[in-house]
Design a protein around this nucleic acid. Structure first.
Lengths: 94, 94
DNA sequence: TTCCTAGTTAGCTAACTACCAAATTAATAT
DNA sequence: ATATTAATTTGGTAGTTAGCTAACTAGGAA
């Protein structure tokens, strides 16, 4: 879970997620949206992959990345739950 | 906004938020929950303060921290919006 | 004033992160 | 087998973060 929060901590990675939210894209397509070197982007993709937020499928020479939407929803749900937004505060506990 | 995500990236800071979600606490009370040196905790509090997620009020010698719930909700709302969970993907755009 | 408690700031080290260039792997085509 | 294209891994540097101890500041009490 911690990895998810860490993954979200970088603007580039949040934008990658936003882009994949619209549709799947190859690493090269994603690269066109950023002014950073390929290895740097590849590193961000690896981090997002390790956090379980995306996964890649090789199609010929290129690798197409997809968003693991279910996991993202789960993460956000956990976030909401953690802060218990909308629920009452308990009075008696530590 | 970026500061909010960065603030959420550390487990200790998320736990501080969770604790303050239940009720306000002084820095010292918070410290009891963690096995870290006071200055380290103070640093986390400063970071959360700079992200706008908490604020402190001095009461005598101690400083009582409160959660800025509205800002946290706003941040989570932005997160949901960013990923547009529940909405349709557009077909025509980049 | 002096002392005590609560917190923060300063200064430092160790560990980590972001980044790039160069080398490497993988798939396909010639 | 060789070449081409796409992407990742490796190796290195610069900057950042988390943690500590020691020193400092703020408020209240003796």
């Amino acid at each position: 879970m911690n990895r998810v929060y860490e993954a979200l901590a970088h603007p580039t990675r949040r934008q990658i997620i936003a882009l994949l939210r619209r549709r799947e894209r190859s690493a090269g397509e994603l690269a066109e949206h950023f002014d950073i070197a390929k290895p740097t982007l590849s590193g961000h993709l690896r981090l997002l992959r390790e956090a379980g937020l995306i996964y890649g499928e090789r199609h010929g020479t290129s690798i197409v990345y997809h968003l693991h939407l279910s996991l993202l929803e789960e993460a956000l749900g956990a976030l909401l739950e953690m802060f218990r937004i909308g629920s009452e505060r308990s009075v008696d506990d530590d």
